Measured scan of single mutants.
Amino acid sequence: AEIMKKTDFDKVASEYTKIGTISTTGEMSPLDAREDLIKKADEKGADVVVLTSGQTENKIHGTADIYKKK
């Protein structure tokens, strides 16, 4: 799966169907969080990951919607 910015995804959204939401939390780098989200998306058969939230304090927390091409 590839990560797309919401603004970029909005241009092609009609080509995809939302298949779920994924999240990651833990003591990790932003890059590790990104890789974890991609891994989870791949496991669910998603083609595209669109980040919906991200937070960093002591731990990273990120959520994303996942989509499959129609």
Rank of each mutant, 00 (worst) to 15 (best):
Y16E: 00
S29Y: 08
H61L: 13
M4L: 05
V48G: 01
K68M: 06
D8G: 01
K5A: 12
I38E: 02
A64F: 15
Y16K: 01
E43F: 07
V50P: 01
E35K: 14
I22C: 03
K11G: 04
T63L: 08
S23I: 09
E57V: 09
N58P: 09
Y67L: 01
S14F: 10
A1L: 07
K11N: 06
K59V: 12
D8Q: 06
L31T: 11
D47E: 05
E2F: 13
E35M: 14
S23Q: 11
S23E: 13
K70T: 08
D32E: 13
L51Y: 08
I19E: 00
K39H: 07
R34A: 09
D32R: 10
T17I: 14
G20N: 00
K44H: 11
A1D: 01
A1M: 06
R34T: 08
I3E: 04
S53L: 14
H61Y: 14
E43Y: 07
I3H: 02
S23V: 10
S53E: 11
K69I: 04
K44E: 07
E15N: 12
I22P: 01
T63F: 09
E27C: 15
D47P: 01
I22G: 00
T21D: 03
K40A: 06
I19L: 08
G54V: 12
A41C: 03
A33M: 11
E15V: 05
A13V: 06
G26D: 10
K70V: 08
D42L: 13
M28W: 05
R34Y: 13
V49C: 04
P30H: 08
K39I: 05
D65W: 05
G62D: 08
G20K: 01
A46C: 03
E35A: 15
D10K: 07
L31D: 14
D65Y: 06
A1Q: 02
A46P: 00
K68I: 11
I38S: 03
K5R: 12
L31A: 15
G62H: 15
K69A: 05
T63N: 07
D10V: 08
L51F: 09
F9W: 04
P30S: 14
E43V: 06
D65H: 05
D36T: 08
F9P: 01
E27T: 12
T24M: 09
V48P: 00
T52H: 13
L31F: 10
S29C: 10
R34V: 13
T24A: 07
K18E: 02
S29H: 08
K70N: 09
A41G: 04
G26W: 09
T25A: 12
D65S: 05
M28V: 07
G45L: 04
K44I: 11
M4P: 01
D36Q: 12
E15P: 01
L51T: 03
E15A: 10
R34H: 07
K6G: 06
T25Y: 11
E57L: 12
A13C: 12
E35C: 13
E43S: 08
E15K: 12
V49W: 00
K11E: 06
T17E: 10
K40E: 04
D65R: 03
P30K: 07
S23R: 11
K69V: 04
T17F: 14
Q55K: 08
V50R: 01
L51D: 03
T7I: 11
E57I: 09
K6I: 07
T56Q: 09
L37Q: 01
G20F: 04
K39C: 07
N58K: 09
A13K: 10
K6L: 07
D47Q: 06
D47S: 06
A13Q: 08
A46V: 02
M28R: 07
T7N: 09
V50Q: 00
L37E: 01
S23A: 10
G26H: 13
D10G: 04
D36F: 14
V50L: 04
I22L: 07
M28Q: 08
P30I: 12
R34M: 14
T63Y: 09
T17W: 14
G20S: 03
K44V: 11
P30F: 13
H61F: 14
T17Q: 06
K69Y: 07
E27W: 14
F9K: 00
T52E: 08
S53F: 15
I38K: 08
E35I: 14
K39D: 03
S53V: 11
T7K: 12
L51P: 04
V12L: 06
L31P: 08
Y67V: 01
I19R: 01
S53A: 10
T56K: 08
V12N: 03
H61V: 15
D10L: 10
D8W: 04
Q55S: 13
T25S: 14
T24L: 11
T24Y: 13
A64Q: 04
K40S: 05
D47Y: 04
K70Q: 05
Y16V: 00
D42M: 15
L51N: 00
D47W: 04
T25I: 10
D32M: 12
K18S: 05
S29I: 05
G26L: 11
K68S: 04
V48W: 01
H61W: 15
I19S: 02
E57M: 12
K59W: 15
F9Q: 00
V49M: 09
K11R: 10
V48M: 04
I66F: 05
S14E: 09
D8F: 05
I66W: 01
E27H: 12
D32S: 08
N58H: 12
P30V: 11
R34C: 14
D8H: 05
T21F: 07
E57F: 09
D10N: 07
T52P: 08
M4H: 01
D65L: 04
Y67W: 03
S14W: 13
E15G: 09
A64L: 05
D10R: 06
T56D: 14
D36K: 06
D65N: 05
E2W: 08
A33H: 06
K18A: 06
T56G: 13
A33F: 10
F9L: 03
I66V: 04
A41Q: 01
D47M: 04
D65P: 03
L51W: 09
S53K: 08
D42F: 12
E2N: 10
V48A: 04
F9Y: 02
